[in-house]
Amino acid sequence: MAKGFVSIAAERCKGCGFCVEFCPTRVLVLSSAFNSTGYHPPHVVAAEKCSGCDLCGMYCPDFAIFGGRYAR
């Protein structure tokens, strides 16, 4: 069971890849799909590994992604 979640607003993403590169548990990859502005937004490949640290949210220059922990 994953400890946390990430929420991605793909339409706001500019595909810089900061979240993919700096995710400590490697939850994300850049998808091959495009958003309407022509960038490749990230998508979740290892949901169970997410710790909800919100480092992706700290790095995202476009405010398009954030993480959080599930309430126990």
């Binding site: 994953a2 979640f5 990430v6 929420s7 991605i8 607003a9 793909a10 339409e11 799909a33 958003n35 309407s36 937004p41 998508h43 979740v44 949901a47 997410c50 919100d54 949210g57 405010f63 954030f66 959080g68 599930y70 309430a71």
Partner: peptide
């Protein structure tokens, strides 16, 4: 196009 396999709580908001 918000796609994810995770259950995102309904009240989750970006802290920014």
């Amino acid at each position: 196009m918000i796609e994810t396999t995770l259950d995102i709580p309904a009240d989750a908001r970006n802290p920014v």
